[in-house]
Amino acid sequence: MAGQAETAADGAEKGGLVFHPMDQFIVKPLFGGDTIAWYTLTNVTLWLALAVLAVVALLVLGTSKRAIVPGRSQSIAELAYGFIYKMVEDICGKEGLKYFPYIMTLFMFIVSANFLGLIPTAFTTTSHFAVTVVLALAVFLTVTILGFVKNGTAFLGLFWVSSAPLALRPILAVIELISYFVRPVSHSIRLAGNLMAGHAVIKVFAGFAAVAVISPVSVLAITAMFGLEVLVSFIQAYVFTILTCVYLKDALHPSH
Protein backbone atom coordinates (compact mmCIF):
# COMPACT_ATOMS: atom_id res chain seq x y z
CA MET A 1 0.00 0.00 0.00
CA ALA A 2 1.80 3.03 -1.30
CA GLY A 3 0.05 6.05 0.22
CA GLN A 4 -0.75 4.55 3.58
CA ALA A 5 1.84 6.35 5.66
CA GLU A 6 0.85 9.81 4.51
CA THR A 7 -2.93 9.41 4.85
CA ALA A 8 -2.57 7.93 8.28
CA ALA A 9 -0.65 10.87 9.63
CA ASP A 10 -3.38 13.38 8.90
CA GLY A 11 -6.90 12.35 9.88
CA ALA A 12 -5.65 11.39 13.30
CA GLU A 13 -5.05 14.88 14.66
CA LYS A 14 -8.07 17.10 14.05
CA GLY A 15 -8.57 18.68 17.42
CA GLY A 16 -11.67 17.84 19.46
CA LEU A 17 -13.34 15.04 17.58
CA VAL A 18 -11.10 12.12 16.72
CA PHE A 19 -12.65 9.23 14.85
CA HIS A 20 -10.92 5.91 14.53
CA PRO A 21 -13.75 3.88 13.06
CA MET A 22 -11.41 1.32 11.55
CA ASP A 23 -9.33 0.66 14.66
CA GLN A 24 -11.73 -2.04 15.81
CA PHE A 25 -10.66 -4.18 12.87
CA ILE A 26 -6.95 -4.25 13.77
CA VAL A 27 -5.47 -7.70 14.25
CA LYS A 28 -3.40 -7.90 17.44
CA PRO A 29 -1.33 -10.70 18.90
CA LEU A 30 -2.94 -12.00 22.07
CA PHE A 31 0.24 -12.48 24.12
CA GLY A 32 2.37 -9.50 23.15
CA GLY A 33 5.10 -9.67 20.54
CA ASP A 34 5.09 -7.53 17.43
CA THR A 35 5.08 -10.07 14.64
CA ILE A 36 2.01 -11.77 13.24
CA ALA A 37 3.04 -15.03 11.62
CA TRP A 38 0.47 -17.40 10.21
CA TYR A 39 0.48 -19.45 13.43
CA THR A 40 0.39 -16.52 15.89
CA LEU A 41 -2.46 -16.56 18.40
CA THR A 42 -4.28 -13.29 17.69
CA ASN A 43 -7.65 -11.77 18.46
CA VAL A 44 -8.76 -13.40 15.20
CA THR A 45 -7.94 -16.77 16.73
CA LEU A 46 -9.78 -15.86 19.92
CA TRP A 47 -13.02 -14.81 18.24
CA LEU A 48 -12.94 -17.66 15.74
CA ALA A 49 -12.49 -20.03 18.67
CA LEU A 50 -15.43 -18.39 20.43
CA ALA A 51 -17.50 -18.88 17.28
CA VAL A 52 -16.60 -22.57 17.33
CA LEU A 53 -17.54 -22.72 21.01
CA ALA A 54 -20.87 -21.01 20.32
CA VAL A 55 -21.69 -23.47 17.55
CA VAL A 56 -20.68 -26.43 19.70
CA ALA A 57 -22.63 -25.10 22.67
CA LEU A 58 -25.76 -24.64 20.60
CA LEU A 59 -25.71 -27.69 18.37
CA VAL A 60 -23.92 -30.26 20.53
CA LEU A 61 -24.42 -29.34 24.19
CA GLY A 62 -27.86 -27.91 23.51
CA THR A 63 -29.07 -31.18 22.05
CA SER A 64 -27.29 -33.50 24.49
CA LYS A 65 -30.55 -34.41 26.25
CA ARG A 66 -32.12 -35.66 23.01
CA ALA A 67 -35.52 -34.75 24.40
CA ILE A 68 -38.64 -35.60 22.42
CA VAL A 69 -40.17 -32.38 23.75
CA PRO A 70 -37.27 -29.94 23.20
CA GLY A 71 -35.97 -27.37 25.66
CA ARG A 72 -34.95 -23.85 24.68
CA SER A 73 -31.49 -24.44 23.23
CA GLN A 74 -32.58 -27.67 21.58
CA SER A 75 -35.47 -25.82 19.93
CA ILE A 76 -33.08 -23.25 18.50
CA ALA A 77 -30.74 -25.97 17.27
CA GLU A 78 -33.62 -27.83 15.62
CA LEU A 79 -34.91 -24.59 14.16
CA ALA A 80 -31.52 -23.83 12.59
CA TYR A 81 -31.26 -27.39 11.28
CA GLY A 82 -34.75 -27.32 9.81
CA PHE A 83 -34.24 -23.84 8.36
CA ILE A 84 -31.09 -24.73 6.42
CA TYR A 85 -32.30 -28.23 5.56
CA LYS A 86 -35.47 -26.83 4.01
CA MET A 87 -33.51 -24.13 2.19
CA VAL A 88 -31.15 -26.68 0.63
CA GLU A 89 -34.03 -28.98 -0.25
CA ASP A 90 -36.17 -26.20 -1.76
CA ILE A 91 -33.42 -24.66 -3.86
CA CYS A 92 -31.09 -27.53 -4.79
CA GLY A 93 -33.59 -30.38 -4.75
CA LYS A 94 -33.11 -33.83 -3.23
CA GLU A 95 -29.63 -34.40 -4.68
CA GLY A 96 -28.43 -31.19 -3.01
CA LEU A 97 -29.03 -32.67 0.44
CA LYS A 98 -25.67 -34.45 0.16
CA TYR A 99 -24.02 -31.04 0.60
CA PHE A 100 -26.21 -30.04 3.53
CA PRO A 101 -23.40 -30.42 6.17
CA TYR A 102 -21.14 -28.04 4.21
CA ILE A 103 -23.84 -25.40 3.87
CA MET A 104 -24.83 -25.83 7.51
CA THR A 105 -21.16 -25.31 8.47
CA LEU A 106 -21.04 -22.08 6.48
CA PHE A 107 -24.28 -20.77 7.93
CA MET A 108 -23.52 -21.63 11.54
CA PHE A 109 -20.04 -20.16 11.32
CA ILE A 110 -21.17 -16.90 9.72
CA VAL A 111 -24.18 -16.39 11.93
CA SER A 112 -22.28 -17.04 15.16
CA ALA A 113 -19.29 -14.93 14.07
CA ASN A 114 -21.64 -12.07 13.13
CA PHE A 115 -23.50 -12.18 16.41
CA LEU A 116 -20.29 -12.48 18.44
CA GLY A 117 -18.98 -9.43 16.61
CA LEU A 118 -21.92 -7.42 17.95
CA ILE A 119 -20.66 -7.74 21.52
CA PRO A 120 -19.06 -4.39 22.41
CA THR A 121 -15.24 -4.47 22.11
CA ALA A 122 -15.50 -7.75 20.21
CA PHE A 123 -13.52 -8.40 17.05
CA THR A 124 -15.72 -9.10 14.05
CA THR A 125 -13.95 -11.81 12.09
CA THR A 126 -16.47 -11.78 9.25
CA SER A 127 -15.83 -8.09 8.56
CA HIS A 128 -12.43 -8.97 7.10
CA PHE A 129 -12.07 -9.61 3.40
CA ALA A 130 -9.44 -12.24 4.12
CA VAL A 131 -12.12 -14.29 5.86
CA THR A 132 -15.04 -13.74 3.54
CA VAL A 133 -12.98 -14.08 0.38
CA VAL A 134 -11.79 -17.48 1.55
CA LEU A 135 -15.38 -18.50 2.24
CA ALA A 136 -16.60 -17.19 -1.12
CA LEU A 137 -13.70 -18.65 -3.07
CA ALA A 138 -14.23 -22.01 -1.39
CA VAL A 139 -17.86 -21.92 -2.51
CA PHE A 140 -16.93 -20.71 -6.00
CA LEU A 141 -14.23 -23.31 -6.60
CA THR A 142 -16.28 -26.14 -5.12
CA VAL A 143 -19.29 -25.24 -7.21
CA THR A 144 -17.30 -24.83 -10.43
CA ILE A 145 -15.40 -28.09 -10.01
CA LEU A 146 -18.57 -29.87 -8.97
CA GLY A 147 -20.37 -28.53 -12.02
CA PHE A 148 -17.72 -29.88 -14.38
CA VAL A 149 -17.47 -33.20 -12.56
CA LYS A 150 -21.23 -33.74 -12.51
CA ASN A 151 -22.12 -32.43 -15.96
CA GLY A 152 -18.87 -32.45 -17.93
CA THR A 153 -18.87 -29.86 -20.71
CA ALA A 154 -22.65 -29.60 -20.43
CA PHE A 155 -21.91 -27.30 -17.51
CA LEU A 156 -20.91 -24.67 -20.08
CA GLY A 157 -24.60 -24.62 -21.08
CA LEU A 158 -24.97 -22.33 -18.09
CA PHE A 159 -23.44 -19.58 -20.24
CA TRP A 160 -25.23 -20.49 -23.49
CA VAL A 161 -28.77 -19.21 -23.06
CA SER A 162 -30.64 -21.52 -25.42
CA SER A 163 -33.95 -19.72 -24.97
CA ALA A 164 -32.56 -16.45 -26.41
CA PRO A 165 -32.43 -15.61 -30.14
CA LEU A 166 -29.33 -17.03 -31.80
CA ALA A 167 -27.85 -13.61 -32.63
CA LEU A 168 -28.00 -12.53 -29.01
CA ARG A 169 -26.47 -15.67 -27.56
CA PRO A 170 -22.75 -14.77 -27.88
CA ILE A 171 -23.37 -11.41 -26.23
CA LEU A 172 -25.37 -13.05 -23.48
CA ALA A 173 -22.63 -15.65 -23.09
CA VAL A 174 -20.08 -12.90 -22.42
CA ILE A 175 -22.40 -11.24 -19.91
CA GLU A 176 -23.12 -14.56 -18.20
CA LEU A 177 -19.40 -15.35 -18.06
CA ILE A 178 -18.61 -11.99 -16.46
CA SER A 179 -21.46 -12.33 -13.98
CA TYR A 180 -20.25 -15.83 -13.15
CA PHE A 181 -16.78 -14.58 -12.26
CA VAL A 182 -18.12 -11.58 -10.35
CA ARG A 183 -20.03 -13.99 -8.11
CA PRO A 184 -17.23 -14.66 -5.59
CA VAL A 185 -16.40 -10.95 -5.50
CA SER A 186 -19.93 -9.80 -4.69
CA HIS A 187 -20.49 -12.84 -2.50
CA SER A 188 -17.57 -11.98 -0.23
CA ILE A 189 -17.72 -8.19 -0.35
CA ARG A 190 -21.43 -8.16 0.48
CA LEU A 191 -20.85 -9.95 3.75
CA ALA A 192 -17.69 -8.13 4.82
CA GLY A 193 -18.93 -4.76 3.53
CA ASN A 194 -22.25 -4.92 5.36
CA LEU A 195 -20.64 -5.82 8.66
CA MET A 196 -17.76 -3.37 8.28
CA ALA A 197 -20.13 -0.54 7.36
CA GLY A 198 -22.43 -1.21 10.29
CA HIS A 199 -19.63 -1.45 12.83
CA ALA A 200 -17.86 1.62 11.43
CA VAL A 201 -21.09 3.68 11.56
CA ILE A 202 -21.66 2.67 15.17
CA LYS A 203 -18.10 3.68 15.93
CA VAL A 204 -18.59 7.07 14.26
CA PHE A 205 -21.73 7.70 16.32
CA ALA A 206 -19.76 6.64 19.40
CA GLY A 207 -17.17 9.32 18.48
CA PHE A 208 -19.93 11.97 18.48
CA ALA A 209 -20.90 10.90 22.01
CA ALA A 210 -17.77 12.68 23.25
CA VAL A 211 -19.56 16.01 22.77
CA ALA A 212 -21.89 16.45 25.76
CA VAL A 213 -24.63 18.34 23.86
CA ILE A 214 -25.26 15.71 21.21
CA SER A 215 -24.39 12.63 23.24
CA PRO A 216 -28.05 11.67 23.98
CA VAL A 217 -28.80 11.77 20.25
CA SER A 218 -25.66 9.79 19.64
CA VAL A 219 -26.61 7.13 22.19
CA LEU A 220 -30.07 6.84 20.62
CA ALA A 221 -28.50 6.54 17.19
CA ILE A 222 -26.12 3.84 18.42
CA THR A 223 -29.08 1.93 19.89
CA ALA A 224 -31.01 2.14 16.64
CA MET A 225 -27.98 1.13 14.58
CA PHE A 226 -27.32 -1.76 16.93
CA GLY A 227 -30.85 -3.04 16.39
CA LEU A 228 -30.37 -2.76 12.65
CA GLU A 229 -27.03 -4.55 12.92
CA VAL A 230 -28.62 -7.47 14.76
CA LEU A 231 -30.99 -7.80 11.83
CA VAL A 232 -28.21 -7.37 9.28
CA SER A 233 -26.05 -9.98 11.01
CA PHE A 234 -28.70 -12.61 10.54
CA ILE A 235 -29.82 -11.51 7.09
CA GLN A 236 -26.28 -11.46 5.70
CA ALA A 237 -25.65 -14.97 6.99
CA TYR A 238 -28.96 -16.02 5.44
CA VAL A 239 -28.12 -14.31 2.14
CA PHE A 240 -24.65 -15.83 2.00
CA THR A 241 -26.14 -19.28 2.61
CA ILE A 242 -29.00 -18.91 0.16
CA LEU A 243 -26.65 -17.64 -2.57
CA THR A 244 -24.43 -20.65 -1.92
CA CYS A 245 -27.50 -22.83 -2.44
CA VAL A 246 -28.36 -21.00 -5.66
CA TYR A 247 -24.81 -21.45 -7.00
CA LEU A 248 -24.90 -25.10 -6.00
CA LYS A 249 -28.19 -25.52 -7.85
CA ASP A 250 -26.53 -24.04 -10.97
CA ALA A 251 -23.80 -26.65 -10.68
CA LEU A 252 -26.25 -29.52 -10.21
CA HIS A 253 -28.75 -28.43 -12.90
CA PRO A 254 -26.89 -26.10 -15.27
CA SER A 255 -29.69 -25.84 -17.85
CA HIS A 256 -31.31 -22.44 -17.83
Binding site: M1, Q4, A5, T7, A8, A12, H20, M22, D23, F25, I26, V27, I36, T42, V44, S127, H128, F129, A130, A192, M196
Partner: peptide
Amino acid sequence: SAIGMPQLCFEW
Protein backbone atom coordinates in the same frame (compact mmCIF):
# COMPACT_ATOMS: atom_id res chain seq x y z
CA SER B 1 -4.42 3.44 15.10
CA ALA B 2 -4.91 1.71 11.81
CA ILE B 3 -2.98 2.86 8.77
CA GLY B 4 -5.45 2.64 5.90
CA MET B 5 -8.01 -0.10 6.00
CA PRO B 6 -7.11 -2.95 8.35
CA GLN B 7 -9.03 -5.22 5.97
CA LEU B 8 -6.42 -4.58 3.29
CA CYS B 9 -3.34 -5.23 5.41
CA PHE B 10 -1.89 -8.19 3.55
CA GLU B 11 0.50 -9.04 6.34
CA TRP B 12 -2.39 -10.28 8.44
